[in-house]
C-alpha cells in the first residue's frame, strides 16, 4: 500500500505528531511505501532544526529527520504555512531576504499541490491533527 500522511499540528502541543510518527514507522516496518509526509498548518513546526527539547523528552524533529534518512521518505512542509511561521530553507531565505535558515535535514518546502498529488498518487491519505 502506498500512503500519504498529513500532519496538521506542531510538535509537543498535541499528540498528533507522535501518533503520525509511530504510524509511519509501523507502516514502513510492514513493508508499505510512504509516498509523502505532508506537514500543514502548525505541522510545519515539525521541521525546524533549532528545537532543543529537554534531555529526558523525545526529540520529535530529529526523529522525523532520521526516519526520512533511513527510508528515503519525501517530507514536505507547506510553503505558505512555513512562510507564515518562519520555517526557512535556502531558497526561501534568498527570496524573502532572511538572514538564516532553520529547516531540519530531510525536509523540503513546497506547495499545496504536493498534498493534492499525494491524494492522487497514494492508495490512502491519512490525516493526523487536533
Amino acid at each position: 500500500m502506498k500512503l500519504t500522511i498529513q500532519v496538521n499540528e506542531g510538535p509537543y502541543q498535541h499528540q498528533s505528531a507522535d501518533t503520525a510518527y509511530y504510524f509511519a514507522k509501523a507502516a514502513l516496518e510492514k513493508g508499505h511505501e510512504i509516498f509523502r509526509v505532508f506537514f500543514y498548518h502548525d505541522g510545519v513546526n515539525n521541521g525546524t532544526r533549532l528545537t532543543t527539547p529537554p534531555q529526558d523528552d523525545r526529540n520529535i524533529v530529529n526523529r522525523w529527520s532520521e526516519l526520512a534518512q533511513e527510508h528515503n521518505i519525501d517530507m514536505v512542509l507547506c510553503v505558505a504555512a512555513a512562510q507564515r511561521r518562519g520555517i526557512v530553507d535556502d531558497g526561501e531565505a534568498e527570496r524573502n531576504g532572511k538572514d538564516t535558515t532553520n529547516i531540519a535535514p530531510g525536509f523540503r518546502i513546497s506547495g499545496l499541490g504536493q498534498l493534492v498529488e499525494g491524494g492522487i498518487q497514494s492508495d490512502r491519505l491519512i490525516v493526523f491533527g487536533d
Binding site: H41, A80, G111, L112, G113, L115, V116, G119, I120
Partner: peptide, 14 residues
C-alpha cells in the same frame, strides 16, 4: 486552508 487546497487542487482536474 481548506479553500486554498480546493482552489489549488482544481488545477489537477479531479
Amino acid at each position: 486552508e481548506s479553500l486554498e487546497v480546493v482552489l489549488i487542487g482544481a488545477a489537477f482536474e479531479q
